[in-house]
């Protein structure tokens, strides 16, 4: 790979994930629809590969935001992983660092509760959209759709650790049952 090609996607990765970093209100899951759309538009991967990498980030230990690292790695190897991760962490990290120091003062302020109350329903909608899009990408037939819905029901109705549910889905697939 020439240096030219290697440097190709890095600026685009940095710009995309720095922007997503500042949009990620409500955590990494809320970002999934936008990330899936933008990553496909760049030609880095389609929705089903994105869904598989997101699943990896969920199954592996650590925060789900590591799907960002995987997208960068897939687009441009190790330097892509480093650039995407850094670009995603640094802008929101600096903001958090700065705001944390002021926050205590406004703890009881009414405007803060008003903003929080208004943000929550938007976040709920974003995470629902993430679930629907991931489901569309991952549930490609009756078997996988059943796994997706059964996982959601078991997660809501039982106290099973999510890792067991992920392992069950992977095992059913690997055994050729899906």
């Amino acid at each position: 790979m020439s240096a030219d090609v290697a440097a190709g996607p890095l600026p685009a990765l940095a710009a995309l994930f720095a922007e997503l970093s500042m949009l990620a209100i409500g955590g990494a899951n809320a970002l999934v629809p936008e990330m899936q759309r933008r990553v496909a538009a760049q030609g880095w991967m389609g929705p089903s590969e994105f869904a598989a990498l997101f699943a990896l980030a969920q199954a592996a230990p650590g925060p789900n935001m590591l799907v960002v690292t995987l997208v960068g790695w897939r687009a441009a190897g190790w330097s892509g992983a480093a650039v995407a991760t850094g670009a995603f962490i640094v802008p929101s990290g600096i903001l958090t660092y700065a705001v944390s120091r002021l926050w205590h003062r406004f703890r009881e302020a009414r405007w803060r509760r008003v903003v929080q109350t208004g943000l929550t329903p938007v976040t709920v909608g974003l995470v629902m959209a993430a679930g629907v899009l991931l489901c569309q990408a991952a549930a490609t037939d009756a078997g996988t759709l059943l796994v997706s819905l059964a996982t959601a029901v078991l997660m809501l109705a039982t106290r099973l650790h999510p890792l067991w549910l992920l392992a069950a889905g992977g095992a059913l697939g690997a055994a050729g049952l899906l």
């Binding site: 869904a51 990896l56 969920q58 995470v127 993430a130 679930g131 996988t144 809501l156 069950a168 899906l178």
Partner: peptide, 24 residues
Amino acid sequence: PVAHGFAGLAAAASGLVLATALRI
């Protein structure tokens, strides 16, 4: 088997996000 395993994993992962959305 690996491809199908990852397909099952991705389906389960999407179910987890759906459940999180319903819970919040």
